[in-house]
Design a protein around this nucleic acid. Structure first.
Length: 935
DNA sequence: CTAGAGCGCTCG
DNA sequence: GTACGAGCGCTCTAGC
């Protein structure tokens, strides 16, 4: 038999018993929730193992690793001396059942787990150490047991995991006063009361070391005992010679244990996530399971909440459905009371928090008050800056009495809000976190009921608090309208009566807490914990930061464009009126329809519920071949759109203080996992038309910086090629081919070098059509070809790529059976409409086909965004915007290349390690002074 | 006067 | 009756 183990290998041997006892004594007597089984030592043992394999230690990284256990209580030493270890205390009752579990734990980690009947763990360790050393390898013994110190020497060291210290020759010398080769002799003389090794009475370690150093070896000492000057010591050595020689045999470790395995069997192997997480979940180790699932990037297994008692920071398993009573809330008006609430939150490990402000724009809104909830029904409101009715016209407003000074309250709350160990529960955490950040508080340790609802129920309903409260708590919250009114007479929250505000604000915190108690256990059952914890929650601070940065927009550029558009529009309008023979509102589809179809007599039909003529671009384009008027209307509409939505409205969104535009990203807006952007929407800035594209010239970088854009190339088609398993498409992507041309070539048999732009255009339309859940009708309309011809294309496409058809059919079937579909990362998108009859079923089918593709792409860019801040930390660069498959950065001029390299790497590797794609992800980069140049 | 539906257009 | 996913400005109407 040949052995691979040799030079360059590094064997680590963990003393299992030492780990177990250390774990047992270090932790309180924990029990498994579901049945009360003691598991404290197992828990500690697993934690120590995990920390060790993570490499979180001072010793070198192992290539081979084993945990060595004792087996049975009778060993060959008992045959020599029946009192050996007779003084050992009996094992504690609650530790005994945990011993086999530590073996199971070791195997679950996929670490070699070794023991031998009749031998101590120390003998196995000794044997392995000798073997490894003889083969030229190195050994680290993970233990601080002094009995093992005799093994230290060339290539063999010990490692004290507790003190994170390596013990080498010097370390041994410190302990015994002799080198490792003298340890056995010293121990034989000094004896060991714990193991009941007799040794020489009256001689301790210090004396023993002195003697061994003087005589060299124990044998020499015993032979020349007569020479000892001290009479008592001389007598002992002579009289107790036999006992000392026995002691030496007892402490001498056996390097020739007949092992039934080889060093090669100890090679490090990765754990099987399913086995390991399964074991940890069985033990009900919540924190550790989560940590290891994170480390392995694996799905978190469900752990039943068996007992009603909650651990700190975890939701109670059983929620009391107390009625919601706004009169029961308290108003906190002094610091002492506030401190009792803070103490309760700390004691519990979680607290629901809500802020009240003067407006919805969190860049400018000021804090008015804060509400907290610690238990269902137990909530308070802390008014801070409520003021009397008078406004600034009368020389400023006066604060209402009975409020804690703002700064005092914030100083008291800051440590709580910034303590990661106390869970702060929000409904829409991004808003409140941004408010707090403006007051110098960086909230850590958040949960967000809105995001929980989104992870659980995306596609089923909205995730606003009112909807969630009604649906899951059967309670309609007090409408904000009742407090601040609406429309022109709307007031700001600081003018609201404090008692009314208390009922409203504390209720919001109470509801948030109750929703959290409902949702938290559901995440596990729905298997979306990982989606929530890895794709939703960590995105909150990233988006908050992007929104705070904002993007610089040049008002003058927009203003000049606006004027130019206005002039052109006026000219067009005059032309249109003249052609129509009367003056009318060109912006009114209703009036336009009447002019076109009633007065001018064009062919066309009524449409929709209102009975108005349809005058969409497609219809006007058809009419434009016959008459100038519809063509002019199309031009007018384009300019009108650009002016009203972009050059005009955008100016109103430029922040007075920053000169920048701060959009707001909605994380729960799109059912597929995409973000949406509002106030203003920066995800639909024109680019397709030359004229519209110029709007992007107004998005600029400040002096000395440039804008950098990176966008994923064809990410959805790549995902389709992967999920449907289309070899030819995957191959085309791997070779970096033009995918639409490749599709056309495959479909129509045209060689790539003879491809015409028209054939390619048709293939491109089909490719996109497939992603959208293709239909002959839709493709016909898009390509403006007869429906039968379009259907022919589709048929041929499915013939060439049968895997696509299979994927579509399988996805629809899955949706019909489960009423949801999933992305590759486990995001669930519910599709209840799939069960509907009639045309609605068609919509639902196409949506079901599209959702996993669009959603997987959305998940990938989310992962990139979550990793990005850390990846570019230290670079003079900021991530500003996300447009579904594009990220826009603002970077100092001389750092552009570095930023592109880093961001590209993050984006292109964003799918791994959670999933492996059969196609590469490619991000294209551009840069320039404006967004027009960068994209 | 205000809220909301409908239309049409912008983006990926 | 139809491509998938979004947001917003404008017009028009219903209803206070």
């Amino acid at each position: 038999m040949t052995t691979k183990f040799g030079k360059g290998c590094h064997l680590h041997l963990i003393d299992g018993s030492a780990f177990i006892f250390r774990a047992y004594h270090a932790l309180p007597p924990l029990t498994r929730k579901s049945d009360g089984l003691p598991i404290g030592a197992v828990s500690g043992f697993c934690n120590m193992l995990q920390r060790y394999v993570e490499g979180n230690h001072a010793a070198d990284t192992p290539t081979h690793l084993a945990v060595i256990f004792d087996k049975g209580s009778h060993t060959f030493r008992n045959d020599m001396y029946d009192l050996y270890k007779a003084n050992r205390e009996a094992m504690p009752e609650d530790l005994r059942p945990q011993i086999p579990l530590t073996r199971e734990a070791t195997r679950a980690f996929n670490i070699a787990c070794e023991e031998m009947e009749g031998y101590e763990a120390d003998d196995i360790i000794a044997t392995l150490s000798c073997q490894a050393r003889d083969l030229g390898g190195r050994v680290t013994i993970v233990s601080s047991d002094k009995d093992l110190m005799q093994l230290v020497g060339d290539g063999v060291e010990m490692y004290d995991a507790m003190k994170n210290k390596v013990i080498d020759r010097d370390g041994v010398f410190e302990k015994f006063g002799v080198g490792p080769e003298g340890v056995v002799d010293v121990q034989a003389l000094a004896g060991d009361s714990v193991d009941n090794v007799p040794g020489a009475p009256g001689i301790g370690i210090k004396t023993a070391a002195l003697l061994i150093n003087e005589f060299g070896t124990l044998e020499a000492l015993l032979d020349r005992a007569e020479e000892i000057k001290q009479p008592k010591r001389r007598q002992t050595l002579i009289e107790k010679r036999e006992q000392i020689e026995l002691s030496k045999k007892l402490v001498q470790l056996d390097c020739n244990t007949p092992l039934e395995f080889t060093l090669d069997d100890l090679e490090i192997k990765d754990p099987d996530p399913e086995v390991l997480l399964g074991f940890l979940a069985k033990m009900e180790f919540r924190t550790l399971t989560k940590r290891i699932a994170d480390a392995l990037d694996a799905e978190l297994p469900a752990i039943e909440d068996a007992a009603p008692v909650a651990k700190a920071g975890e939701a109670p398993a059983e929620v009391e459905d107390l009625p919601i009573d706004p009169e029961a809330y308290t108003c906190v008006s002094d610091l002492e009371t506030l401190n009792t609430w803070i103490a309760e939150a700390r004691h519990q490990g979680y607290v629901a928090v809500d802020t009240e402000t003067t407006g919805l724009d969190n860049m400018t809104a000021d804090l008015v008050g804060i509400s907290l909830a610690t238990k269902a029904g137990k909530a308070c409101y802390i008014p801070l800056t409520h003021s009397k009715g008078g406004d600034d016209l009368f020389g400023g407003s006066e604060l209402v009495a009975g409020q804690i000074p703002l700064q005092d309250a914030l100083d008291a709350l800051k440590p709580l809000l910034e303590d990661e160990a106390v869970r702060k529960i929000f409904q829409n955490a991004k808003y409140d976190c941004k408010i707090f950040q403006r007051y110098g508080i960086i909230v850590q340790g958040i949960d967000d009921t809105m995001l929980m609802s989104y992870a659980l129920y995306s596609g089923l309903h909205g995730h606003g608090m009112d909807a969630l409260s009604e649906r899951y708590l059967g309670h309609n919250p007090i409408p904000i309208k009742d407090l601040i009114g609406s429309g022109k007479s709307m007031i700001t929250f600081d003018k609201v009566d404090v008692e009314k505000a208390t009922r409203y604000a504390a209720e919001d915190a109470d509801i948030t807490l109750r929703l959290w108690q409902k949702f938290a256990p559901q995440l596990h059952h729905a298997k979306v914990t990982r989606v929530y914890e890895r794709l939703e929650r960590p995105l909150v601070p990233v988006l908050a930061q992007m929104e705070r940065h904002g993007v610089l927009v040049d008002r003058d550029t927009l203003s000049r464009m606006s004027n130019a558009f206005a002039q052109k529009m006026a000219g067009l309008e005059a032309d249109i009126h003249e052609m129509a023979g009367e003056s009318f509102n060109v912006g009114s589809p209703k009036q336009l329809g009447e002019i076109l179809f009633d007065k001018m007599g064009f062919e066309g039909g009524k449409k929709g519920k209102t009975g108005a003529y349809a005058t969409g671009a497609d219809i006007l384009e058809d009419l434009a071949t016959e008459h100038e008027l519809p063509a002019r209307v199309l031009d007018w509409r384009q300019l009108s759109k650009l002016k009203s939505t972009y050059t005009d409205a955008l100016q109103d969104h430029i922040n007075k203080e920053t000169g920048r535009v701060h959009t707001s990203y909605m994380q729960t807006g799109a059912a597929t996992g995409r973000l949406s952007s509002t106030d203003p929407n920066l995800q639909n800035i024109p680019i397709r038309s030359e004229e519209g594209r110029r709007i992007r010239e107004a998005f600029i970088a400040p002096e000395g910086k440039v804008l950098v854009s990176l966008d994923y190339s064809q990410i959805e088609l790549r995902i389709l090629a992967h999920v449907a398993g289309i070899d030819s498409l995957k191959q085309a992507f791997r070779e970096g081919q033009d995918i639409h041309a490749a599709t056309a070539s495959e479909m129509f048999g045209v060689p790539l070098d003879q491809m015409t732009s028209d054939v390619r255009r048709q293939a491109k339309a089909i490719n996109f059509g497939v992603i959208y859940g293709i239909s002959g009708f839709g493709l016909a309309r898009n390509l403006r070809i007869p429906r039968a011809e379009a259907q022919g294309f589709i048929d041929r496409y499915f013939e060439r790529f049968p895997g696509i058809k299979d994927y579509m059919d399988a996805t629809v079937k899955f949706a019909q059976e489960n009423l949801f579909v999933e992305t590759l990362f486990g995001r669930k998108i519910h599709t209840p409409e799939i069960a509907a009859k009639g045309p609605r079923a068609g919509f639902a089918k196409r949506a079901a086909i599209n959702a996993p593709i669009q959603g997987t792409a959305a998940d990938i860019i989310r992962r990139a965004m979550i990793r990005m801040p850390e990846a570019i930390a230290g670079q003079p660069a900021k991530m500003l915007l996300q447009v579904h498959d594009e990220l826009l950065f603002e970077v100092e001029e001389d750092a552009v290349d570095q930023l592109i390299a880093t961001a590209r790497e993050v984006m292109e590797s964003a799918a791994s390690p959670a999933i492996h794609l059969d196609v590469p992800l490619i991000a294209d980069a551009g840069q320039g002074c404006s967004w027009a140049e960068a994209h």
